[in-house]
Amino acid sequence: MQRVNMIMAESPGLITICLLGYLLSAECTVFLDHENANKILNRPKRYNSGKLEEFVQGNLERECMEEKCSFEEAREVFENTERTTEFWKQYVDGDQCESNPCLNGGSCKDDINSYECWCPFGFEGKNCELDVTCNIKNGRCEQFCKNSADNKVVCSCTEGYRLAENQKSCEPAVPFPCGRVSVSQTSKLTRAETVFPDVDYVNSTEAETILDNITQSTQSFNDFTRVVGGEDAKPGQFPWQVVLNGKVDAFCGGSIVNEKWIVTAAHCVETGVKITVVAGEHNIEETEHTEQKRNVIRIIPHHNYNAAINKYNHDIALLELDEPLVLNSYVTPICIADKEYTNIFLKFGSGYVSGWGRVFHKGRSALVLQYLRVPLVDRATCLRSTKFTIYNNMFCAGFHEGGRDSCQGDSGGPHVTEVEGTSFLTGIISWGEECAMKGKYGIYTKVSRYVNWIKEKTKLT
C-alpha cells in the first residue's frame, strides 16, 4: 500500500490518463441519441435557420407576430419608411378606419389613436360632414345658397324668414311668412316636400332668348283662358290664391305678392273693366268669414305684352289694390325667389296649380277651390304637342294621358313649387288646347323671366 501511494504521488498524470480511459469505455446513459432527441424537440425550422439574422431580410411573422416588435424591426421587413409607417399605425392600436367614419364618399386613412378623412370636392370637416359648395344638395341650405369668396357655403332665406341657429334652416321672422300653410287642420295635408338634388348652379339658368321682337298675326285659340281631375282644397291650404270678379264672377285667378299687390295673367284683364279681388276665398257660393274683398285701382301688364300681336306672350300683369290686405292664416303671400332659384325650383319637376275653373272641358265651374299636382314636361315634348308657338318664356306641365289639367277660369292662378315646406311661385296658368285632352298640356308663363320686374313694381313704400 505504501508503494502504491508513492507511485500516485510521483505520477499524477498517469492516474488522470487511467481515469479518462475508464470513462470513455463506459456506456453513456444520461444523453439520448440524435434521433430520439429530435422526437422530443420537434420544432419547425425557421426561415433563416442556421444563418445569422443580421444578414437576412426581415420576416413579418418572425419579427412582429411571434413577439412584439419595434418600429426598427418592422422597418427591416418593409425596407421602406412609408410602408412601415402605414403598417405601424394599425399594428400599434388597430384600424381606426374600420367603422368607416368618413361621410359623403370620403376616404379614410388610419393613424395612431386617430384617423384622417380625405374629402371629395365640396366637403370638409373631420368626417367630411361639412358642405362647402352650393353645387351639392344646395349646400344643405333649406332655401338659398351662395358661395363666399373663400368658396364656403353661405345660406340665406327669402323675405319674412331668418336663418336658424344651425345656419342652414329657415324659420319665420314674421307672423305670416310667405308660402307657408298655417291653418292647423290643413298642415297635415301639406304636399310632399321637395329635397334639393345635386345641381350645376353655374349652368342652372337656361341660355334662352326671349323672342321679344317676333311679330306674329293673332292666333285663334280655343278655350285658351284655361282644375280638371283635381281635388277639393281645404280652407287655408292655398292662402296665396285669390279669385278675380268682373263682368262675371271667378273669371280668373291670381296670387298675393304682398298686402297691396296681386300677380295674374295679362290676358285676364281689360282696361276700363272694374275688377274686384277676393282673398281668403274657399267656396265661392258661401260666406265663410275668411274672405277679404278689395278693388283694383291700377293694372300693370308687362311692358312687352301686346294682345294685338299675341294674347299669351309675356302673359303676366300686376294688380294694385285700393287697401292693403290683412295677412292671416287664410290670406298669405306666395314666396318669389330670384331668377336663378325660381328656375331651379321649376326644374324640380312638379308643381301645384289651383283655381275655381271648370271641372271638365266646357263644363261647370268649381264651387270649392280645386288643386292638382302636375309634372313638368320637357321642352321637346311640349313643342311636338301643339302647332302653336311655345315661346321661351312659357313652359308645359300636365299629363300625356289627359284627364287632369287646369281649365277655363283658372287662368292667372299660381303654379307653385314647394321647397322644404315653403311654396314659391314658378308659373302662372296661361293657356292650353281644350282641357285635359290626351297628348295636350297646360301652358304656363315662366315666372323666372319676370321676377325682377315683379319685385321692382310691387315694392311697398
Rank of each mutant, 00 (worst) to 15 (best):
F176M: 05
E124L: 03
N245K: 13
N36K: 12
V227R: 11
V447N: 00
C407S: 04
K126F: 09
D95N: 13
S350A: 11
V277Q: 01
T186K: 14
G427H: 01
Y441E: 00
P120A: 08
N100E: 09
L325S: 00
V4L: 13
Y115P: 01
N48F: 04
N38P: 08
Q96K: 12
Y22V: 05
V377D: 01
F395W: 01
F31S: 15
R3T: 07
K274D: 15
E159S: 09
V416H: 04
D198G: 11
L367N: 13
A37F: 08
G254W: 00
C18A: 11
M394L: 08
V4Y: 06
G355F: 13
V419A: 05
K68C: 04
T264C: 07
G229R: 14
Q370A: 03
E61M: 07
G229H: 06
L130P: 04
V269K: 02
G106P: 01
F196Y: 14
Q167W: 07
V30D: 14
N166L: 02
F71Q: 15
G439N: 08
S220T: 08
H34A: 12
Y371P: 06
E281R: 10
N100S: 12
L325F: 11
K347P: 01
R298F: 03
L321P: 00
F71P: 08
F238P: 03
C28Q: 04
N135T: 14
E193R: 07
E54I: 08
V92M: 13
V92E: 15
A233M: 08
G355I: 04
L103K: 09
D95S: 12
T225A: 08
L244D: 00
Y47C: 04
L60I: 14
R449K: 06
C97G: 00
F238C: 04
L19E: 02
S70G: 15
V174D: 07
H314P: 02
Y330C: 03
V377Y: 02
F395V: 02
T29F: 07
S350E: 15
H289M: 09
K146N: 08
F224S: 15
S99H: 12
V228N: 05
V243E: 03
G280V: 02
T389Q: 14
L19C: 08
K109P: 00
G351R: 02
E79K: 15
K146R: 11
T461V: 11
L325P: 00
C117R: 00
Y352E: 02
E420Q: 08
F31T: 15
C157A: 00
I210A: 13
N104G: 02
S49E: 15
P301C: 07
D315R: 01
E259T: 06
T332D: 01
Y312A: 05
C28N: 03
L14M: 09
S411D: 15
F78Q: 15
N138P: 05
D131C: 06
G413V: 07
R191Y: 07
F123I: 04
K362N: 13
G355A: 13
W118I: 02
R449V: 11
N203A: 11
Q90R: 06
K39W: 05
E401H: 12
I428M: 05
E259Y: 04
V278Q: 04
L189Q: 07
Q185T: 15
A164I: 04
F196L: 14
E76I: 15
L460K: 12
E142D: 13
S70C: 05
N258I: 00
F144I: 03
I17F: 08
P12S: 14
D249W: 04
W261K: 01
E286S: 11
E61D: 08
Y115R: 03
E286P: 06
A26L: 04
N100I: 04
A307G: 14
V183F: 12
S169A: 11
E323N: 10
L19Q: 02
C407P: 04
E66Q: 07
A308I: 07
L346A: 03
T215W: 05
N113I: 06
E286D: 10
L372G: 13
F388N: 10
F399Q: 11
S204M: 14
V278L: 07
I136K: 09
G409K: 13
E142C: 02
N328C: 03
T16Q: 09
G236P: 04
K109Q: 10
T386G: 09
H400Y: 13
F399S: 12
I15G: 04
G50M: 10
C134V: 03
E98R: 10
P120I: 04
G246P: 05
V257T: 01
R364A: 14
A233E: 05
K152L: 10
H400Q: 15
G125Q: 00
T290P: 05
L41H: 13
N80D: 13
A308T: 11
I300G: 01
L163H: 01
E76V: 15
V278R: 07
V248S: 11
L369E: 06
E82D: 15
L376M: 12
K39Q: 09
H34Q: 09
K274C: 04
N38I: 08
E27K: 06
L244V: 06
N42L: 08
F78G: 15
T422H: 03
L20T: 03
T417S: 09
F123N: 03
D200T: 07
W356Y: 14
V154P: 04
V368F: 06
L189N: 13
S350F: 12
E288Q: 07
V153E: 05
I299W: 06
E82Y: 06
G253F: 04
T209P: 14
Y115H: 04
L19D: 02
P235I: 08
D378V: 03
D405A: 08
I299M: 10
G421Q: 08
S411K: 14
C252K: 00
N100G: 04
P172D: 04
D232L: 06
I262V: 13
N48R: 09
Q241C: 05
T422D: 01
T218R: 10
M65A: 14
R162M: 09
K438W: 09
Q219R: 06
Y91N: 15
N222A: 14
R373M: 08
